[in-house]
Structures are given as C-alpha cells and as structure tokens.
Amino acid sequence: MEPRIVYVHGDGNKPREEVLTSQWDSALFGVDMGSASRMAHWAPLLHPEPLPDGRADPLDGGAVPAEETRESAPASVEATEEFVARTLAEARAETAGRAAGAEGAPGTGAGSDQPLAGWLRDMGYLAEALAQDGGPPVGAPGGPEARLLPSFARTRLFRLLVEHTFKDVHAYFFGGAGAAIRDVVRQALDQAREGAGAGGPLVVVGHSLGSIVAYEVLAEEPRDVDLFVTIGSPLAITEIQDVLAGPPAVPAGVAVWRNASDLRDLVALDHTLRPEYAPVHLVTDHLVLNTSGNHHGAREYLATGPVREPVRALFGGLAARQTG
C-alpha cells in the first residue's frame, strides 16, 4: 500500500517517457522514484519522434536552437494583435447577424463578463515566449479594444487562437485527439493502482494542457485521489471552461486540490480556481515563483514549496529509501 504519483505533461513534444519521468521526479523529490511514479506520456500521439534525451523542452522553459526557433516560433505580438482585431471584428459581425435572444445580444450570455481581447493579446506575448519580465501589462493601451462577447463568440475566437498558436491544444479540443489523450491518462491511473500501490495514497500532477486532460479524466470517471496538483494551469480561464465537457467542479473522489501558478505565467492567466470549482474548501490556490525562462516550466513549478510539501508529506520516507 505504498503511495503512487501520476504525472500528466503539457503541450509540445517531450523526451522519452522514462527520461521525462525521471526529470519530474528529480525536481519534485530530488531522486528518481522508480515504480512509485508514472508519466501519462501522450506526446507520441501528436509527435512521432521524441526530443533527444539532452534536449530542453521550449514549453518547459528550455532554450531551442536559433534555426528551429525561426522555423517554429509562433507569430509576433504585432501579428497576433492584428489577428485578434480581425477575428474580433468577424465575431461581432456574426453576433450582430444572429437572431436576438438565441444566444444573447453582445455583452450578454453565460460568462460574458470576461473581456477576451486582453487575454488574446497576453497569449500572444506567451506565444513569443518572452524570457524576461516586462511588456505591456494586461489592459495596457495600444492593444485591441476589449468588448464583452457571448459564449459562442468567445469559443470561436478561442478555437481560432489555439489553431493559430498552440497546435496541441487545438488537437485536443478540436482536432479529434482528445479521446486518445485521455485514454493514455486513464491507463496510467489504472497502472498506478496495480500491485504495491493498490489502496495506497494516489497523487495526480497535471501541467498546462496536462492539467486539463487530468481534470477531464477525473471528472468523467471518479477515482479516489488523495491529492490533485495543477501547475501552470489554464483551467480558471473562462474560454477554457467554455469548452470543457462539463461545468467546472472538483471531480468526485478528489480529496484535496492544490493549484500553483506564477503571476508571470501567461498560460495560467487567471490564477484562482477556487471561485469556479466547488466545493471551494477542497481547493487552494498558491502564487509561486517560477524561475524558468517563460515562467511556465514544469520542473520549476515542481520545485516550489506549495507543490513539494504536500506531495512529500503523503510519500513520507519513501523518497529517502529510494536513495538507500
């Protein structure tokens, strides 16, 4: 009845499963945890060739060679703002053409109190992967004008944005890959409950898009999870909640949910899950310092106290025994 931990990685290509698992173990526990840890390694579904073992993952805060940056870098901030302005105009035109009351007039409808333009602009800054503090803050002048849109228009804009910038997110929500990715997470959870781990504490850690996948699997099929940890998660963003399979709530079976984000992490643009995911007493939001180049790195999140401490408390002396 030893504890088990299941990791769910985020967007982009990754190293081989055993390499990535060991990297996360080292960041969280300071040692490779062997059979006590497991990675829900879904990257091969979208990226047939893994990153070389010594290669840094750019979405995990690592650097990439300049020639590959030129080939694969998302649009610049200026191009993204032009894209935002154009798609906002298209959505407003579509909104105006709809019959009154079908989804609500512009500025009404479920969740329409969330201005979208500022979020889109900020995601553009993430797409450029700024490696330093600064840049126009949220709501700074010079960006596209923020308007309140009904949920169907926000969802359409969100879909266009992720197709434009974040390919794996688009594949998960709109490209037909979601079911297969969730299957990988289900299998990892099932395997974690087998053998010596049966009946012992279970921890699930999801980073970025991986936090969404882990959340949806746990919401679909309730499991006893002693600690659910989300790091660099976009689950608090209204546009993400618009496209989830069900309304936001703590998944049945989750005893404790800890959410950690850095204020400079623009994937986790909204840092508080607690107001939207009931029952609120099960959720705690933590602001931490993520020292990776883009403030989104998984290993940097795993090394922070609010993430490490509750996990290590459940694992007791197991990490120390792994070094013996």
Rank of each mutant, 00 (worst) to 15 (best):
P44E: 05
P48K: 01
E49C: 03
P52Q: 07
D57H: 14
L59C: 05
D60R: 01
G61C: 10
G62T: 03
A66F: 12
A66L: 14
E67F: 05
E68G: 00
E68N: 03
R70D: 00
S72L: 15
P74M: 10
A75R: 13
V77F: 11
A79G: 10
E82R: 15
A85T: 11
T87P: 01
T87L: 06
E90K: 12
A91Y: 01
A93G: 14
A93I: 08
A96P: 08
A96V: 11
R98F: 00
A99L: 12
A102K: 04
A105C: 04
G111Q: 07
S112P: 03
S112L: 05
L116G: 05
G118S: 14
G118W: 03
R121A: 09
D122G: 10
M123C: 08
L126N: 06
L126G: 04
E128Q: 15
L130F: 12
D133C: 12
P137I: 11
V138D: 13
V138I: 11
A140K: 07
A140E: 01
A146M: 08
S151V: 13
F152M: 04
T155N: 03
R156S: 13
R159S: 11
L161V: 00
L161N: 09
V162R: 01
E163C: 00
T165K: 10
K167Q: 13
D168S: 12
F173W: 13
F174G: 02
G178L: 12
A180S: 13
A180G: 08
I181N: 00
R182E: 14
R182N: 05
